[in-house]
């Protein structure tokens, strides 16, 4: 075999290739991307309007603060959706196009293949989430005088490691069940967010769900980003969120890979890589 440097170079080119392909597809489907973005804005507006609704019902609240809390929840929901969707497409889209066998017989390691999908998902997700945040904040004329957006971005970046690991676990589902696997990814996303305090504090959850919240990376991501935007806390003041996110990330990436590898072996054993439909 060639040396490690040459192998690493080939792997990096492969990773670039995965990102490049996703850029091509995003460009070709830009009208659809725009339509989905409009849908996400509508969805997030619906959620943020709840703060206005509560005020209208006579309850005295800080609407600006509550609306920002809900906005962060809505944006993280959307971001997580993008990460899961793109990673699930690793298998689902290629299976549908019939290219999956060509991709899986190429000499690229699976970690780099999935890593390339993850890198694109993070870049695309950050851009779309930032746009979403800006559009909705502008719509409600929200003010965030203390916001430390760089710190919020840093928390999101660290959280993305865990999100990628979880996405790898769901990416394998279309290999096991070509018909329903992709939909199961949405269930996993929903399960993760119900325990993570997306629109309400984790403290309102029953005890067993609060325990689940402790191992959900979304919990720490939401807490950290809200603290950075509302309280202006910097990175050095958020180790309580960043350290758990690192630990969960270190666990979920190899776990996600191991699960994907097992799923791939299952698919190769039972002939499920082949295109159907």
């Amino acid at each position: 075999m060639k040396g490690p440097a040459s192998t690493l170079r080939a792997e990096l080119i492969g990773l670039y290739g995965v990102v490049e392909r996703n850029v091509y597809l995003t460009r070709r489907y830009w009208v659809w991307e725009f339509a989905f973005f409009i849908w996400t804005i509508a969805n997030t507006l619906t959620i943020v309007f709840i703060a206005k609704g509560v005020e209208a019902s006579g309850v005295s609240i800080d609407v600006n603060r509550q609306a920002t809390i809900l906005l962060v929840g809505g944006v993280i929901w959307s971001y997580l959706g993008i990460i899961f969707e793109i990673l699930t497409e690793t298998v689902a889209w290629e299976r549908w196009e019939g290219t999956i066998e060509y991709t899986f017989m190429a000499p690229l390691s699976r970690i780099v293949h999935l890593g390339g999908m993850g890198v694109f998902a993070i870049i695309y997700g950050v851009v779309r989430s930032a746009l979403l945040f800006g559009v909705v904040a502008f719509f409600f004329n929200l003010t965030m005088p203390n916001a430390d957006f760089l710190a919020a971005l840093f928390v999101l970046a660290v959280a993305s490691i865990s999100f990628m690991g979880l996405g790898m676990m769901t990416a394998v589902l279309p290999l096991i069940s070509p018909e329903k696997g992709a939909q199961l990814g949405f269930i996993a996303q929903g399960m993760l967010l119900v325990v993570s305090g997306i629109y309400y504090p984790v403290s309102v959850l029953p005890e067993p769900m609060q325990w689940l919240a402790k191992i959900s990376p979304a919990t720490y991501a939401l807490e950290g980003i809200r603290d950075a935007i509302l309280e202006g806390r910097g990175v050095s003041q958020m180790w309580g969120e960043i350290v758990p996110l690192f630990i969960i990330g270190i666990i979920t990436i190899p776990l996600g890979m191991a699960i994907f590898d097992r799923g791939e072996r299952y698919a190769k054993q039972h002939g499920k890589l082949k295109r159907s439909g």
Partner: peptide
């Protein structure tokens, strides 16, 4: 291009 990148091109 996509196929070739997987082979290090």
């Amino acid at each position: 291009s996509y196929a070739a990148r997987f082979y290090g091109m």
